[in-house]
Simulated assay, not measured.
Amino acid sequence: MADYSQYAIAPAAEWVDLQKTLPPPAVPPTATVFEIRDAFNASRAKSHREFYGTPDDVQIDEFTIPIPGGSSIPARLYRPKNAGKGPLPLYIRYHSGGWHLGSLESEAPYCAHLCSTFTKTDPTGVGIAVLHPVYHPTPEHAFPTQPDESWAAFELFASEGSALAAKYGLDAKNVHLGGTSAGANLAIGVAVREMRRIQKLQQEQGADARKPTSRVKGLILTAPPTVHPDLFPYHLLANRESSSFVQNADAPILPVSRVNDFVNMYVPNASEETKADERLSFLIIPDEQFDKDLWPPTTFHVSGLDPLRDEGLLFAEKLKRIGVETKVTIYDGFPHGFNLFPQLKESAKWREAKLEELRWLLSKQ
């Protein structure tokens, strides 16, 4: 039985020092969820813009992505101005925030930084493009709006003959996905849906047909939610008391009460069927339903003080069992979302690890 409690024995000293400097919340206790969302998005955009700056070697294109129902969502594409020869690999980054927070502006500084920094250090000299689609937030739009919109963004760029991929010089056969928290959940959901699409195609075409490969070439996941809290498989752990949901119930940034708030906005009054939907709860999909040949190499970044710690590590173990290449980085004593504070040395470690993982994934193509 698994026991990951050693990763949260004590808060990391760097985190303790940072906490002493953090200002109190800027919104009054009577603020609505919408006012809190607006304040968070504005604050994150400002602080990240001040830290990351505005790279002058990145081209930013803004457009809309058609989604089911005839509507659309905004998106931004970040490309190196001085790209090497050949089409650019694409990294689609779904943003964090409990399916509730996040905007074009809150994510822009890091997306531009990632595009610029990776391209400057890319040994192939090609670089990378970063796509950020902005799915509709909760509570105005509940599940399955967000996974369906995330899939629509992937389909638009990863489909054979993609007009947008051709227009922007992207390699539609070299698409990688990632995100933090809710964004990681959405990235996994796209990979599951892609696997199911191919499995269905194989059934229709028969065993003698050529076996397709997944269009998702890699996953980079930070603090991924992988199962509805009500369905967490405590039986896979040594004991319930040492689980991250119990051990980190009052953790900073994302205590369990806040997890529940986000989930209840995402899947309000959820039935048991909805809780188990494989667009949300991947951890409980039986191992035998996964095909290691249809699942991309996957990297995990997991925080020791995170209530979501165990479901991320258990999902990593699941992929290892079925033979998927995985890499796991654990940040002992740090809470969920510590990387939102880019001034931390641990956040610099996280950023560098992501660059290394992108190089690793791209080297496999």
Rank of each mutant, 00 (worst) to 15 (best):
G218E: 09
P252A: 05
P25E: 00
E288N: 08
A31D: 08
A251Q: 02
R240H: 12
L280N: 09
G169A: 03
Q205L: 15
R44P: 01
E194Q: 15
T274K: 14
S71P: 03
P144A: 01
E14I: 04
N339R: 11
E317F: 05
P252L: 05
P80Q: 12
A31L: 06
K217W: 07
G125S: 02
P109A: 03
T213V: 12
F232R: 03
Q289Y: 06
K20R: 14
D277M: 03
E272Y: 10
L314K: 11
V216P: 06
Q365Y: 10
A172M: 09
P87T: 03
W360N: 13
G70D: 05
L231I: 08
T32E: 11
R193N: 08
L101F: 15
F34Y: 07
K46V: 07
T119W: 05
D332K: 14
R359M: 13
P29W: 11
W99A: 03
V263L: 11
P24Y: 10
E357K: 02
V58L: 08
I36E: 15
Q199T: 06
S363A: 15
L170D: 02
S96G: 15
E149N: 10
T21H: 06
P268D: 06
I92V: 15
Y234P: 00
Q343H: 10
M195R: 15
K167P: 08
K173Y: 09
L236Q: 12
I330M: 11
T213D: 12
T64K: 14
N260K: 10
P66Y: 12
P225F: 00
R321D: 04
H136G: 08
V328S: 09
P66T: 10
P89W: 13
E346T: 14
G169S: 02
L186K: 11
F282D: 01
P342E: 06
A13W: 00
E140Q: 14
H228R: 09
D230L: 05
G127T: 03
S242Y: 04
T180L: 07
A153F: 04
P24E: 15
D17K: 15
V126P: 02
A13G: 04
G333I: 01
W350K: 04
I67K: 03
S303K: 02
